[in-house]
Amino acid sequence: MKAMSTAKFSLTAVATGALVMAFAHWFHVDYLFFASYTILQFIVLATAWNILGGYCGYVNFGSAAFFALGAYSSVALIKFDAEIDAWFPEGAANVLHHIFPLPIPVLILFGALVSGVVGFGMGYLTLRLRGSFFAIATLAMAVVLQTLIVNWDFVGGSRGAYIIRPDNLEFAGIEINYIEYLFALMLLLAVIALATARVIERSQLGFGFATIRDDELAAEACGVPTLRLKLIATTLSGAFMGMAGAPFPYYIGYLQPASAFGLEYAVNSIAMPMIGGTTSWVGPLVGAILLGSAQQYATVTISSAVNLLIVGLMLVAFVIIAPNGLIGLVQERLRRKQS
């Protein structure tokens, strides 16, 4: 595999996605958009997890919480829009009505901000201690954020919130099907996430991350500011997870804490990189596409619980038998052929 420039790489990725999009559009298969959206969302989550987990070696069990934070920050902004007239005097309300409802790309940025800040905070509190504390704290955080959301009536509490998805979006005089719009946004996010991971891998930052994974004491002795790099990783990783969650309320239409904090997000965002391979950006991509499409296919044929059981068993089996994932297996094959 020869090194490709980032621009070329992004173009290839977008072209692949556009091909899927054109295909689905041509044949009017809305299901294909729904299904691919989910897979793209998993690509973003798995890639985000891997920036911290695979590159730095710090396990985040709270992917679902970061994802849900993104989703709920969108819900909060959408609900805020509905309350403007009640909360503000007329003059201010008129100004706000010009700004709200916020377009989804802005919601995505906002979700990234919220989740990124939470990621930074978690990291700041726990990363100076031994490595496992961070993992435990993220697990506990998922439970607590869910408790907070369940108790927050403004965003629907435990009852959940309905978000009305428009059928179409007017853009420069062209009408775009909203599902296709959401798909395109998620596609863009996936490309950005993969390109970021790829750039990091080849940069000074990527080398620094790898030293943290290998030996933090030695890294410090070589002049690597480990705490700062770990905070960059937790913030970046959290922000991408929040981005993946931000458009979710529009996609699903009805958001409940139980679905936003769904265990499948936490499990899949770990299982996908682990099964694909954690040392390069290709691993999470391969894992997300394989596991993601298998699950899309399987939920139609078998129950979602059986589905998740299979993912869990695969995760356990892979970490025991193939510690470097599918990519590792392929690399080993190639190496053996060479020698």
Partner: peptide, 14 residues
Amino acid sequence: SLRGLAFFFGLLFV
């Protein structure tokens, strides 16, 4: 640190 944690997480989940 990485895979052992993922292993236990998988067990919990399964």
